[in-house]
């Protein structure tokens, strides 16, 4: 496998990024010349915005990130518990799983306004929206993982009359770790989407990058909007990077030779 620091790996992406920045600069400069300043800010203005008040962006980023992570924790833990329950009680799975599959394909961020109405403008509805967004992908993926325990190993444990709890702890849960990481890779970036959408809906109430975006856009200030978007992008990439790094370490032990 070629390493990430090898130029052949990262150079194409860097070149593409530079091209994008140049195109952005050209288009934005042209628009500003025409006096259409509300279409696209100059990259320099966005950078100046970020450099000018890093504290604001950091604290807003932390607000959004902590909302997202709390949502992942809440939604993820509940989904994991339900996944274990459904994998142990097939009847329950037959009852609940079709519903979960439907909801997994539904854009559940649409719940956001309703949750804001129900829980007000504080942090609670935002964490709940994120939790709802996270819940179904984790449930569906983890359930698949729990069911994917190798049949011959199951047969050995059953021939020893290992209890269900023993089978769960010693075989099913460790076997489901790859699925857990698959879920996390999907769900962590998604949780940021959930948090931002929740902030859109309940804007003006508190800090957060979503709030910053809506309030700035309402005042035709595009530089902060794009600055916030860039911070969000970096946040998403960082989250994914953390998951992949942890995944490599864990799966090297629990599922060696799978990748």
């Amino acid at each position: 496998m070629r390493r990430w620091w090898h130029p052949a790996i990262w150079a194409p992406a860097v070149v593409a990024l530079l091209v994008l920045a140049v195109v952005w600069q050209l288009v934005a400069a042209r628009l500003v010349e025409r006096g259409q300043t509300y279409l696209l800010p100059l990259p320099a203005d966005v950078v100046a915005e970020l450099v000018g008040s890093p504290g604001t962006y950091l604290s807003d980023a932390w607000t959004t990130l902590s909302t997202a992570l709390l949502g992942v924790l809440l939604g993820g833990v509940l989904a994991a518990v339900l996944a274990v329950l459904l994998s142990e009680v097939p009847l329950l799975a037959r009852a609940i799983l079709p519903l979960a599959v439907v909801l997994n394909t539904t854009p559940v961020v649409a719940f956001a306004p309703a949750l804001v109405v129900a829980f007000g403008f504080g942090r609670t509805p935002k964490v709940l929206v994120t939790a709802v967004v996270v819940f179904f992908p984790v449930l569906v993926t983890l359930l698949q993982g729990l069911r994917a325990a190798p049949p011959d190993a199951l047969m050995v444990l059953r021939s020893l009359r290992a209890s269900r709890a023993e089978v769960l702890l010693r075989l099913r849960l460790p076997s489901a770790l790859p699925a857990l990481f698959t879920a996390l890779r999907v769900v962590l970036p998604l949780s940021v989407v959930g948090a931002v959408v929740a902030e859109f809906v309940a804007a003006g109430s508190s800090s957060g990058l979503g709030t910053l975006i809506t309030t700035s856009a309402a005042n035709y200030q595009l530089a902060p909007v794009y600055a916030a978007i860039i911070v969000l992008a970096v946040m998403g990439v960082a989250l994914l990077g953390v998951v992949v790094a942890v995944e490599r370490r864990v799966l090297a032990r629990y599922a060696p030779g799978r990748r």
């Binding site: 190798p150 011959d152 190993a153 047969m155 050995v156 021939s159 020893l160 009359r161 010693r170 075989l171 460790p174 629990y254 599922a255 060696p256 030779g257």
Partner: peptide
């Protein structure tokens, strides 16, 4: 089996990695 008097060797080794 409940007394663990049956040892089983399946087709695949089925070891826990």
């Amino acid at each position: 089996a409940a007394d663990k008097e049956i040892g089983l060797v399946p087709q695949t080794p089925a070891l826990l990695p």
